[in-house]
Amino acid sequence: MNKVLSAPQSSKDEMIKRKILQSARTLFIEQGIENVNMHQIAKMAEVGQASLYRRYTEKGDICMEIVLEECQPLFDDVKAYLDQSTDIPVLDRLYQVIIKFVTFMEANVPWLCSLSRATPGYRPLQSPLYQFMRTTFRELLTEAVERGDVTAVDVFYTVEVLLAALHNIDFHIRDHGFSTEKILLGLHRIFIEGLKK
């Protein structure tokens, strides 16, 4: 009985959530994230303030949810690739994941960075995007160590250095004028060729 009653409520909640996120996304793009407030989001979504605040206590919470949605295609792509490529050498798989990340960031950097900076307690390398990449890189490097494919390496430190390099991609592209190809070649030289036995 409860399951029958909860299904429509769950569907209604999901619909309200979608309206809020879509309205926020539209407002953020049109006006800039810093120029949008919770009242505007509620008004555009046509939901009451109480309904909005029951789901999100502040604008940064909405930003965090949008960041997760924006990153989900990358997460799915990486997972699917790794599931289908177990027969490929580990360091080659690692490099393909790096390529996927760089390509994703190049296409999404200004928007994603603005959203991330508006999230509560903004710490870029602790965001869901970097947590996912951290876990993925650690698993791949650990496998490479166990297989004897790499020289003695501190997996945790190496992953943090790789994440720091990846985090500055927008700076390297915009301010230094490095091409994506140049960045990927450099990352390959340091983190793939540099680690091979």
Rank of each mutant, 00 (worst) to 15 (best):
N2C: 09
V4I: 13
A7D: 09
P8F: 15
S10L: 12
S10P: 04
D13F: 12
M15H: 10
K17F: 14
R18Y: 14
K19A: 09
L21Y: 08
L21C: 12
T26Q: 15
L27W: 12
F28A: 08
Q31K: 13
E34D: 08
N35V: 06
N37S: 04
I41W: 13
A42I: 06
A45H: 13
A45G: 14
R54L: 10
R54I: 07
R55I: 05
R55N: 11
Y56F: 15
D61R: 15
C63I: 09
E65H: 15
I66A: 00
E70H: 13
P73M: 07
D77H: 07
T86N: 06
D87I: 03
I88N: 04
I88D: 04
Y95F: 15
Q96A: 02
T103F: 03
F104A: 02
V109W: 14
P110N: 02
L112S: 03
C113D: 10
L115P: 07
R117I: 01
P124T: 05
L125S: 04
Q126V: 06
P128G: 04
P128L: 01
Q131K: 11
M133I: 00
T135P: 01
E139I: 05
L141F: 12
L141T: 03
A144E: 07
E146H: 05
E146V: 03
D149S: 13
V150S: 05
T151G: 11
T151A: 08
T151I: 10
D154T: 00
Y157S: 14
V159K: 00
E160T: 04
H167R: 06
D175N: 07
H176K: 12
H176I: 01
G177F: 06
F178A: 05
F178T: 02
K182S: 06
I183P: 02
L185Q: 11
G186E: 15
I190C: 08
G194E: 03
G194H: 01
G194L: 02
L195H: 00
K196H: 06
